[in-house]
Design a binder for these strands. Structure first.
Length: 485
RNA sequence: GUCCCCGUCGUCUAGCCAGGCCUAGGACACCGGCCUUUCACGCCGGCGACGCGGGUUCGAAUCCCGCCGGGGACGCCA
């Protein structure tokens, strides 16, 4: 039987990194096994659902390089792929359970249930539904209905049975049905079926063979297995991924900082780096190679190698990976990605040709951690009226020879004719050094400051060649003016 | 409270199932050096962990028990 997995997010308006990793692991597992990756939208909670929110999911997956074989937009043989469109299907199976006598109507109100739970907790008991509506007579029901109560449908949980499943990540898990919290709701009073029920119908009908999801679903699994059995479906294999934790070791949430895929995209993380990083959260390749393309991830991925311990979400390594990818990215693609950040930072790029811009990206890329760093480092090339750094000013003022160097350099360059190649620039600097009688730091640093206003940056000759005579002259004047000469 | 899951360097992890090859390996971060007439890159080196206590064994990170710690779930959310 061929492998079929699914990613089933609910459209909340943002894609959490935990969900992103779940999607990725499902995808890697599917591709590694030549299986099918299904995208299903879990929107039974209609109030919150919006088309916009579904798009957020599409965008995030696409950005990460995850493609789905079946889904709401691309269709597939087991559609529809949106739970809100599957209501008639659910109805059919609800009827089946009714016929079998495995469900019953419960007229308890949310308030009553809350009170019950509270009491139980106070008595130190685990909160559970006591099953008090289990044996209501027709008359009693009629009476409750007359009060205006609308019933929910509850599934009868067997008394004392051990549900066992072999989790692909965690190993054997056994849970007694007594721990399930009593008969659970499968249809709300408004007629809408709940997650634990629809997920089973959908996974079964969509022929899902492996359910790969977060560890927080372990406690739902026995309930779902009960439903699979009740409906006569084959139970799929389960794989529960360890939780992703924040710095404080609690479940990662908004209060831990950036947790949505969009935020990482906007900060300027490359999708390759982000995906690579996520893959390493809870999984490790046998050969220990850590920088891996999607193809390489697919090749190596095995659900059995997934770690069962939770992982702290620490972006330090993501930063490193991003640098690695930035340095090896195709320069035209990288330039495309960098330009929006430059514009946002207020640079007018109309005066620069594409070719030149790419060259600048090439010599500055090794300084970026994230793409949003680009403006800071590229400013050196894009702006003539830069601010001279305080540290640089002080350095020049420390020794009168240093300002002399800048002036001599300006003089020499003004009289220079022709293409300012790297070689020509080097020669020029050498002559300045001789003239003023300095060398080393005292020669090079003033020139660097003259050109950039900074104490550090790319190699001078490369910088000079890319800038050209006119712009260098403007810069030197700018520096001189700020130092007070 | 009850049940479930988890516990190796600061972080991601290898090793654990099939005990000795582990004076516990790698990566990131950090620190130091080299390279470089700057910074960064790169290269080399360093720091740094088996939660605790018992047991089994000639031998335990690995097996068993207990404790402690962390997390998750107990919804008419998914």
């Amino acid at each position: 039987m061929s492998v079929r997995v699914r990613f089933a997010p609910s459209p909340t308006g943002f894609m959490h990194v935990g969900n992103a990793r779940t999607a990725l692991f499902n995808y890697l597992f599917a591709r590694h096994n030549n299986g099918t990756f299904v995208l299903r939208i879990e929107d039974t909670d209609i109030e919150r659902h919006s088309e916009e929110a579904v798009n957020v999911i599409y965008e995030a997956l696409k950005w990460m390089g995850i493609e789905w074989d079946e889904g709401p937009d691309v269709g597939g043989p087991y559609g529809p792929y949106r739970q809100s469109e599957r209501l008639p299907i659910y109805k059919e199976f609800i009827e089946k359970l009714k016929e079998k006598g495995l469900v019953y109507e419960c007229y308890c109100t949310p308030e009553e249930l809350d009170a019950m739970r509270k009491e139980q907790l106070e008595r130190g008991e685990p909160p559970r539904y006591t099953g008090r509506c289990r044996h209501l007579t027709e008359e009693e029901k009629e009476k409750l209905r007359a009060e205006g109560r609308k019933p929910v449908l509850r599934f009868k949980v067997p008394e004392d049975e051990v549900i066992v499943f072999e989790d692909l990540v965690k190993g054997r898990i056994e849970i007694n049905t007594r721990q399930l919290g009593g008969d659970f709701v499968i249809v709300r009073s408004n007629g809408m079926p709940v997650y634990n029920f629809v997920v089973v119908i959908d996974d079964a009908l969509m022929k899902i063979t492996h359910v790969i999801r977060g560890e927080d679903h372990i406690s739902n699994t026995p309930k779902q297995i009960l439903l699979y059995r009740a409906l006569g479906f084959d139970v799929p294999q389960f794989a529960h991924l360890p939780m992703i934790l924040g710095q404080d070791r609690s479940k990662l949430s908004k209060r831990h900082g950036s947790t949505s895929v969009k935020e990482f995209k906007d900060k300027g993380y490359l999708p390759e780096a982000f995906t690579n990083f996520l893959a390493l959260l809870g999984w490790y390749p046998k050969d220990g190679k850590e920088v891996l393309s999607m193809e390489e991830l697919i090749e190596r991925f095995d659900i059995k190698d997934v770690n069962s311990a939770p992982a702290v979400f620490d972006t330090t390594k993501l930063n490193w990976l991003n640098q690695v990818y930035i340095r090896s990215y195709p320069i035209d693609k990288l330039t495309d990605l960098v330009i929006p950040y430059l514009k946002k930072a207020g640079f007018d790029l109309s005066g620069f040709c594409r070719d030149w811009l790419e060259k600048v990206v090439e010599v500055t890329r090794e300084y970026f951690t994230v793409l949003s760093d680009a403006p800071v480092y590229m400013e050196t090339f894009l702006k003539e009226d830069f601010q001279v750094q305080q540290e640089a000013k002080e350095f020049i003022l420390e020794n009168p020879k240093r300002i002399e160097v800048i002036k001599a350099f300006k003089e020499k360059l003004s009289g220079f004719d022709g293409e300012l190649s790297q070689e020509a620039f080097k020669k020029l600097v050498k002559e300045v050094g001789k003239e003023v009688g300095v060398k080393g730091k005292n020669l090079f640093m003033p020139i660097r400051i003259g050109l950039t206003g900074k104490m550090s940056g790319p190699e001078l000759p490369i910088l000079a060649e890319l800038l050209g005579k006119e712009r260098i002259l403007k810069r030197v004047d700018n520096t001189l003016k700020q130092i007070g000469n």
